[in-house]
Amino acid sequence: MNGTKLTLARKRSLLGIAFILPWLIGFVLLFAAPLFQSVQFSFSKLTVGLNGFELEGVGWDNFNNAMFVDATFNRILTQSVSEMLLNVPMILFFSLFSATLLNQKFRGRTLARAIFFLPVILASNAIASAESAGLINLVGDASVVNEMGGSTSEYNIMSMVMILSDIGLPISFVDYIVGAIMRIYEIITSSGVQILIFLAALQSVPGSMYEVAKMEGATSYESFWKITFPMVSPLILTNIIYTIIDSFAGSPVTDVIFTTAFETQNFGLSSAMSWIYTVIVGIILVVIGWILAKRIHYN
């Protein structure tokens, strides 16, 4: 009796392993092995021969080169990490705001939803690079394009700065808000998936909660902060992590890693750079997760 039960359990677990087998093979061969190799590469000088490659251990040299010798990596890394950290709160705010907006009932809601998720479809690095190449081609110089990017928005930003600082807001906060307005397109286009996730969360909040709150006399402002916000708070962490991961793809750091490896053929340095990046991002994720984990309401 006991024996047959055991075999059934074992059968089940074997079947389970069979189900995850494709993933397991892929994980070992295409993730774990490259990951290990990548660590190995970052500590060695790699020369590619006709067949395969040769490694020569150099210790921490690659890391040293990436951080202190390479002219641009340091700057690009700090710039893109700080940009990412600035963008996360804005994307989060905007996506929660849009999700609440799109969750309300109004005419043309389906159309509005369709448009709000359009950026998910159209986010492509190839298109972005072709677009900027077209513009560079048009004006003849890359630096002009960067300047144009700042001046093409015809709206005079100074008036807004004046108004906001007249209200008495601290100047750093004004800077942040104005920066957000200048980058509104970037923020809107990178928050499609986040809106989708928040929207799904909002729809899972039971309507009876709002009815009770209304009967008790809560304003909609109060019911947002006391009901909606706690209910979607687990998804805030999910969205933060998603936003950070999503920023890898188009990040200038990834470009530098890519060109170091495949144009200047310095594979060791490139691996070292990518590990520095990975570790920094990992630390950020852990810190954010640690801070938020206590404040999130799980039901």
Binding site: I17, I245, T254, I257
Partner: peptide
């Protein structure tokens, strides 16, 4: 399915989400 190490393996799935693609480019190539 509950097989030995299933939780550890699922944690590794999460790890594959979190590691930036840049890290694996050279060895994959």
């Amino acid at each position: 399915f509950n097989f030995p190490g299933s939780n550890v393996l699922f944690a590794l799935v999460i790890l594959t989400i979190l590691v930036p693609t840049g890290t694996l480019l050279v060895p994959m190539y």
